[in-house]
Write a protein that binds this DNA or RNA. Structure first.
Lengths: 207, 207
DNA sequence: ACAAAAAGTGCGGCTTCCGCAAATTTACGG
DNA sequence: CCGTAAATTTGCGGAAGCCGCACTTTTTGT
């Protein structure tokens, strides 16, 4: 044995790779043939692991699919921590969200992005996935609340404030994304998100 | 055959009774012996129906338990529609929430309320139920958005506004309730909710 | 290179969830 | 009241999902 502060650890890396491979495999197959027609067995095969291994990572198909979404959402909190402390809170949040969005677009710039959007649409349409989506959002919101608390010198456990801001921001992002997904003549996301967050910071005045 | 606008309909009534009986049974048993140790079979037995019938009403144990919560949350939108149109929106929302809260307290004033609070605590602690809780909140939020749209003359499909307000309000309520549940020296709920909604309407200024 | 720890795998079993068809109950018109 | 149509409940059967446990393989640290 030894200490447990090893940085990346080749081991940890492989684990993450498997996790991501399983998640993408689940999304791919679900998009391709519909969630109902995908068995855990298939996903495992696609990711080159044993069926049993799948459940070592995820406790359901839905969780595997939502995992990608969760990872992305987490980044917002990460990004917020990076913003300079001088920046006003709402500004920082807005920038963090938009930055994450840009990162996502760059990251899988070749084709996965297409798959990403399709994946999201799958999640919002399949009832059994909506729950997973919401759960992921909730987890991300917690982390966001922690980051906000840190930045504003408040206490997540005692003060209403950080969770309130995180919850409201999360709702705004959710609504903006939703609007974006259902816009018939496609519209850009960023303005929607900015608009939503701005209104929030303005106290949601009646239009 | 005939028209289908029968008001209560003896048939519909029985259905609702069964639904509620199943839901309460699920909560009772889950609180009593832990969710893991409750089988669908047991719930059905408690409600005096066949096991198969359970799945005619709910597609999972979790859904059955969250059903009570959902019904309550729905009432907020109902209540909002009843508020006079002259009342400012935020005022109306706040009142609607508090009224619903009061109704709930009166309704099951004898003992179920105790059970209710225990049930909620169960839901927030059991991971598998958190998802159901979130799903119920989402459904309630949709209805709230519809009510808000109606009241403000906006369009749920086209405008960001109603869903934004509903989402933010939902988040505020959630956070306030959460705070209430974990308050060690118990505190009253109402002030928490008022505080949360007021801050929202004020644009969530840093404290 | 070795021993310990962690991850992957296989097996077995218990539940859940759902489609289908028969039985039972309710609704409505005469 | 009675009979027929519709809706609900129930029983059966089966496909998956999910998970504990024990065994094997791989990684880690010395």
């Amino acid at each position: 044995m030894s200490r447990e502060a090893e940085r990346p650890g080749l081991r940890e890396r492989k684990k993450q790779e498997t996790r991501i491979a399983l998640s993408w495999a689940a999304i791919r197959l679900a998009v391709e043939r519909g969630l109902e027609n995908v068995r855990v067995e298939d996903i495992a095969a696609e990711a080159r692991v044993a069926p049993r291994t799948f459940n070592n990572y995820f406790s359901s198909k839905g969780e595997a699919i939502a995992a990608r979404h969760l990872d992305r959402a987490r980044l917002i909190a990460q990004e917020l921590r990076r913003r300079p402390a001088s920046e006003p809170l709402w500004e920082a949040i807005k920038t963090a969200v938009l930055t994450q969005l840009a990162m996502g677009e760059e990251y899988d710039a070749r084709q996965p992005d297409q798959q990403w959007q399709t994946g999201i649409q799958l999640m919002v349409s399949e009832p059994s996935l909506q729950g997973e989506m919401l759960k992921a959002n909730a987890i991300a919101e917690e982390e966001l609340a922690a980051a906000i608390a840190e930045r504003t010198g408040t206490d997540v456990a005692r003060d209403l404030y950080p969770r309130l801001v995180a919850g409201a921001a999360g709702a705004a992002i959710r609504v903006a994304m939703d609007q974006w997904l259902r816009a018939d003549p496609p519209v850009p996301v960023r303005p929607l998100i900015e608009d939503a967050l701005d209104r929030l910071a303005a106290g949601l005045p009646e239009p």
